[in-house]
Design a protein around this nucleic acid. Structure first.
Length: 217
DNA sequence: CCCTGATTCGC
DNA sequence: GCGAATCAGG
């Protein structure tokens, strides 16, 4: 494979969108992520802008780049979409240590069900969508704090939007959209170790008891 | 171990 | 120019 104009264009597009090198490599096919990264650098479109959560601690000490350093400042303030939750004094996006493993199958759960899965994943288990209601997966949004909800919506814009077949042990399996339409897909972002969802979705699937509060409806 | 991007250097 | 190997960090 070679870097045809079309392939380079797709590379630029995906890189700009914030896709990872490996994702781009998979999409292009015939190249490894190394090839993609190498190309990215040669094209000089390194430092991605926008809400780049990257910050991969580049050049810790040795950066012998003689003249390849445009001396571009890494953006003073990088609000990595971290809308500090309920008046948080500290900008710590880290999950509270006291976070109870209380599972909240948001989608209809009269009583505390020990089922560690909201709904869609359950579907995955049986491979069958309960014939009853057309849309069982989506959690009842009225029980989630507006902060978290906003954060999730933001994350879902960046979702990889992968298909069922692309799910792996480490991709977020949170369903997005209506399974009955072609606008359905799975989050696909990196899942938290040992959990089926990414950080954002874990936060809505597993909530501290304290965060639970009735919302008028 | 999984992943990320960065850099080097032989081709 | 290319990209595997390697490095460094999460």
């Amino acid at each position: 494979m070679s870097w045809t104009d079309e392939r380079v264009e797709l590379l630029k597009k995906m890189w700009t969108e914030g896709q990872s090198a490996s994702q781009i490599a998979k999409e292009l096919g015939g190249v490894t992520r190394n090839a993609v990264i190498g190309k990215v650098h040669r094209l000089g479109l390194s430092n991605r802008v926008e809400g780049a959560p990257a910050a991969a601690t580049a050049a810790p000490a040795a950066s012998p780049a003689p003249s390849a350093r445009p001396a571009v400042e890494p953006t003073p303030a990088a609000p990595t979409a971290a809308p500090a939750a309920a008046s948080a004094p500290r900008p710590e996006p880290e999950p509270e240590p006291e976070l109870e493993p209380v599972v909240r199958p948001a989608a209809a759960a009269p009583r505390p069900t020990p089922a560690p899965q909201p709904a869609a994943p359950a579907m995955r288990k049986t491979g069958i969508v309960p014939a009853g209601q057309p849309l069982p997966p989506q959690p009842s949004l009225n029980e989630i704090s507006p902060e978290t909800l906003a954060s999730v919506r933001e994350v879902e814009k960046r979702a990889r939007k992968i298909s069922l077949m692309e799910l792996t042990e480490r991709t977020c399996k949170w369903p997005i959209g209506d399974p009955a339409t072609d606008h359905f897909y799975f989050c696909g972002l990196p899942s938290q170790p040992g959990k089926p969802y990414c950080e954002a979705h874990v936060s809505v699937a597993f909530q501290p008891m304290s965060a639970r509060r009735d919302r008028r409806r």
